[in-house]
Design a protein around this nucleic acid. Structure first.
Lengths: 164, 164
DNA sequence: TGCAAATGGTTTCATATGAAACTATAACGT
DNA sequence: ACGTTATAGTTTCATATGAAACCATTTGCA
């Protein structure tokens, strides 16, 4: 057999992983580049982080949530939510009052300023998503949705994950 | 029209994002849960992080790389690689010597101990990947590969990303 | 009632991470 | 040869992150 270099270790006997074909690795790369690309749009412009934006996004859909509920819906842990809220409230983008019947809970919502920002960022985010999906044809897009639904159902995603 | 609650803001006029259908968000959730699940396998057991494991994985495939080349192939930045290498060398899992012709570069490779660990972790990682993919049927798996190839080619992934 | 356990949220602490500055060596142009 | 620029890699610093401890309030129940 023709002698190759390579210290005889990086060969069959060790069966090294091929990172570039390893699904978890590929997902991680894709997820990071995509999120980063989108975040770059508003990060600087509005001085807001991805986690903060996610909090705003759920508050735009569901007014009056508590912090815990926000954590559930964003799949973030409660520490992250607490911190994001601190900044958002500080920046006047989110309002927070104590729940009438349960003084532990807070009742959250977007402020006027929060809504204004939301209404600028949401279309941008959607546009970026469209750009990304434009690289697939209709059939591929349909499969992607289906596959993600499947992989995210059950153990993953947030549904039925009690607290965090 | 029938009056609904909800402060009249979270409605059509604002078109809030539906996080749970937003591709970047879904990718992020999936990527995190998958990576975490796999990492849990070896994290505690071998006291090694995901980034360190990735470095080991490429060194298993390509002996004698420099740190920069490792960074390229793992899509990690050079600071992360530098730190991972420091720990790996310290733990006796990676060997590092200075390149003969270029004293800036290091020449990296797995040690005996590194190989032993690699040979235990790699099959575990592959098994986890198989479990994940087992939730899809053959057709879906094929589409997923194709879609990821497409989305990762060009701007994303590491190919042609000069340095970082 | 009154007290143990649970829950909502925040703070603390230890670790992870990236950008920018820095050190050492090499490459390039004159 | 010699200074300028580029490259490999490390360190520093500021920020991000999560687990665990913590405080306040509420719930469950004897």
């Amino acid at each position: 057999m023709p002698a190759k270099r390579k210290s005889a270790s990086a060969t069959a006997e060790h069966a090294p992983l091929q990172l570039e074909h390893f699904l978890p690795y590929r997902l991680s790369i894709l997820s990071n580049t995509v999120s980063q690309a989108i975040a770059d749009d508003y990060q600087r412009r509005y001085d807001i982080s991805v986690t903060e934006w996610r909090v705003m996004a759920v508050l735009a859909r569901f007014e009056g949530l508590s912090a815990r509920e926000v954590a559930e819906r964003t799949a973030m842990d409660k520490v992250a939510v607490s911190r994001a809220l601190a900044r958002l409230v500080g920046a006047g983008r989110v309002s927070r009052v104590t729940h009438d019947d349960d003084k532990r809970r807070s009742v959250l919502g977007l402020t006027e300023a929060g809504w204004r920002m939301h209404d600028e960022v949401a279309p941008m985010a959607r546009a970026r998503e469209r750009e990304l999906l434009a690289r697939l044809d209709a059939e591929e897009r349909a499969w992607l949705t289906r596959i993600l639904d499947k992989l995210l159902s059950d153990g993953n995603g947030n549904p039925e994950a009690a607290n965090r």
